[in-house]
Computed example of a mutant assay.
Amino acid sequence: MEKWLVGVDLGGTTTKLAFISYYGEIIHKWEIPTDISDQGKNITTNIAKTIDAKLDELGQLKNKILGIGMGAPGPVNSSTGAIYEAINLGWKDYPLQQLLEVETSLPAVIENDANLAALGEMWKGAGNGAKDLVCITLGTGVGGGVIANGQIVTGISGAAGEIGHITILTEGGAKCNCGKTGCLETLASATGIVRLANEALLETDEPSKLRDFNGSFTSKDIFDMAREGDKIASAVRDKLALYLGLAAANVANVLNPEIIVIGGGVSRAGSELLDPVQSYFKEFSFTRVRESTHMAIATLGNDAGVIGAAWLAKNAFGE
């Protein structure tokens, strides 16, 4: 009997789940709301219940499942599967792997969500099997995952790859969730880009279609307006490209990966984002790095996390 893998991608608002074949094909995927009440204590129970219900619905028994891979926000202790801290869920030193295994009666393995997106892109996405890869995810925050020689780089305390917390502005800059100021996350996340645009609108009287939104525009609107030649939107896009290109070049100068994959909601801007980022990347990267490291937009979209989680489970529990 060919076994299935379960991939779980835990987000602050929704949790994505999928049954995935041993070879990385999605068999069935769905999502449930993330219940962050009572410091997230219902999360593992809800995951266990929905897996049981879905197996039932598909007429499968639990022995069809080889194991669960799960991505969670925040640094993970890879030896115990505990979460050191996930601020938006209210978790601190939370024994996620242990609780998930107890609730589901299945073996589980836990990793940081951005690391799993990187693994997903390596296995089935833009990474195309590259063994040295960096993934930068631009969503509500900025996540990073580093794969060197086919292995996730976790670091001594699970915090490797925190690309979103590279300091880009050494003076001024907005305060980040992490407590520092000037982090890449405050500049290149979806919320950061909107903040940059609001600041630009206050600094000048330059006409801009962004003013018609009365402050309720999104990062997508900014890219759309930039595409139409709106001067302020174009300047914001350029500033974002500078910050992201600089951070990516610094990361690449240290790691010299084969590919840097840009993912997350903001990456849907495609070449509108990638082209200017690449030109700054070339400006700031070391010659050998510039010649050997290339950049691409992620191809798996929202599925990267669950596919990476399945890869993790396959590696942990497979033959």
Rank of each mutant, 00 (worst) to 15 (best):
E228P: 01
A53N: 14
N46T: 00
E103C: 01
V142Y: 08
G71Q: 00
F217Y: 13
I232F: 06
L202N: 14
M1R: 11
K124H: 13
L89Y: 11
G192T: 08
K49D: 11
K29F: 07
T167L: 13
E103Y: 02
T44C: 15
E171M: 00
I163N: 03
S189N: 11
I87N: 10
D93G: 05
Q39S: 15
D275H: 04
L133I: 15
S292W: 01
K64N: 13
A233W: 02
A269E: 07
G145E: 07
E85Y: 10
G179I: 12
Q151C: 03
E162S: 06
A86D: 03
H165K: 07
R195S: 12
V142W: 08
G265P: 01
E319C: 00
E85M: 13
N198H: 15
G318A: 11
T204E: 13
D230N: 12
Q60M: 15
A248N: 03
D303Y: 06
A174T: 10
Y94Q: 13
L202G: 14
A114G: 08
K62R: 14
V194G: 07
A241V: 03
G71D: 03
E121W: 09
I168C: 13
I147Y: 10
I65H: 03
L96V: 11
A241W: 02
L210W: 06
G139L: 07
L61N: 15
A86N: 00
S279V: 10
G81D: 03
H28N: 13
T13M: 09
V261M: 07
T44P: 05
G264K: 09
H165E: 05
N149S: 14
L119R: 09
K239M: 08
P33D: 10
D56E: 14
G74L: 04
I83N: 04
L89E: 02
I222K: 02
Q98N: 12
E31W: 09
G139P: 05
A86P: 06
A235H: 04
A298I: 10
A200L: 09
T170Y: 13
V102A: 13
S216D: 15
D38G: 04
T45F: 12
L96E: 02
L66T: 05
